[in-house]
């Protein structure tokens, strides 16, 4: 199966307030980015993530976070060199989260060449659709950062093939 060299994945649960920001951003990017870029949106459970990104070149994830700063703050995290959970075992009875997905992929050798998170600090994870105003206002910044990642990836590929 062909795997895209560059992949954008928006993560989250759209029924839990700002947790839906990743998927909402992905839907918008699917509309606006050129058709050569594969954009996925998913819940963010580890097994589906690993399956999506293995064999890909560069992967840009978009997800809601807590602990980055003020609601609406956007930050770039290089997931292959930075740890997003300092607590060791993630507290969850079911799903394996993003950090576990990264760790699992590393253990299995199923990681892309580059794995970048564009994280948006959430204001609320309450039940219900719709983003908070602060997170909604952060979307242009998210799009700008994703575009920058894609441009960098393109220039790397061009210089590699030159």
């Amino acid at each position: 199966m062909n795997r895209p060299d560059v992949l954008v994945i928006g993560l989250g649960n759209p029924s839990r307030g700002d947790d839906g920001v990743g998927r909402k951003a992905a839907l918008e990017l699917r509309r606006t980015l050129n058709s050569g870029t594969t954009v996925l949106d998913m819940l963010g459970e580890a097994s589906e993530l690993i399956d999506a990104w293995k064999n890909a070149g560069k992967v840009v994830l978009i997800d809601a976070c807590q602990g980055l700063g003020k609601p609406g703050d956007v930050r770039r995290v290089d997931l292959l060199s930075e740890d997003i959970n300092g607590n060791g075992r993630e507290i969850s009875s079911h799903g394996l989260g993003l950090q576990e997905a990264v760790n699992m992929a590393l253990a299995l050798g199923d990681v892309p060449r580059e794995l970048i998170l564009v994280g948006i600090e959430a204001a609320t994870f309450e039940h219900g659709d719709g983003l908070s105003n602060k997170v909604k206002s952060a979307l242009p910044k998210v799009f700008e950062m994703v575009a920058k990642e894609l441009a960098e990836s393109k220039s790397v590929r061009e210089s590699e093939s030159a």
Binding site: R16, D18, D63, G67, S81, D83, G86, E90, G97
Partner: peptide, 13 residues
């Protein structure tokens, strides 16, 4: 590979 710790909790979780 340097490791930095940022405490982030992801939702659904």
């Amino acid at each position: 590979m340097s490791t930095r710790t940022i405490k982030v909790d992801y939702l659904a979780r």
